[in-house]
Amino acid sequence: MKTTGILWRLASFAVAAGFVALWQLIANFKLVSPVFLPGPDRAWASLVRGFSSGDLLAKLAGTVEHMAYGWLAASIAGIALGAVIGSSPRMRTYVAPSLEFLRPLPVSAIIPVAIAMLGLTQAMALFVIAFGAIWPIMLATIHGFAAVEPRLYEVARSLQMSKLAVIFKIALPSASPDILAGMRLSLTVALILAVVCEILAGLDGLGHWVLLSARAFRSADLFAGVILLGVTGYVTSVAMSLAEHRLLAWQASQR
């Protein structure tokens, strides 16, 4: 059973390698202008060059930093606000509809407002990323808190648990699957907004790097940057999956 799984995985890697080879062939025969499409060899060379000179690493670090700070701020604020709103039925009736109304708003539309307030600065980028990333987390937390099994609140009452203990021992763990799902969604939002802010504000990061490369028609550098962005998205989402897997081990047996 396990070996067939590995064989499938290998076959799947072979198919992916085939696509890369096809890409190389297209580039070699110049079926697409090399200005737009560098071969994987040139993209790889650019990646290696960028890393050995430290340029690309610095850009990568910049993007990851923007993303991480914004996302962490959004997580803390989102969970706190979501907990306050979600644990009070009164708050829910008054506040939740407004939040639901704002939910489908394309968050990037807040960027010009942030620029007007904060200028083309790091602070603007962090504000935009945090603002965009807070919605999925906050709404998921509200939902999670509202959906706590009422029986558990009765258990807490008959144990005469304090309000704080109820939040930390009953409501938060019960809402944790929702919260983590929200945090996962936000991770993607944070990465996209980090790139957009870097493009707009010229902040040090991969977004700025790919834009500059495109302007100078350095397609190999451009592809190297895009590949790195893909890797960043992949690695963060895998890390998030691992965290979810660990934190929600108790759910595995339920499904």
Partner: peptide, 15 residues
Amino acid sequence: AIVFQDYGKALLPWR
């Protein structure tokens, strides 16, 4: 102390 009928709901699934 109260023992509820629906034990599935009255236990903390994450503990």
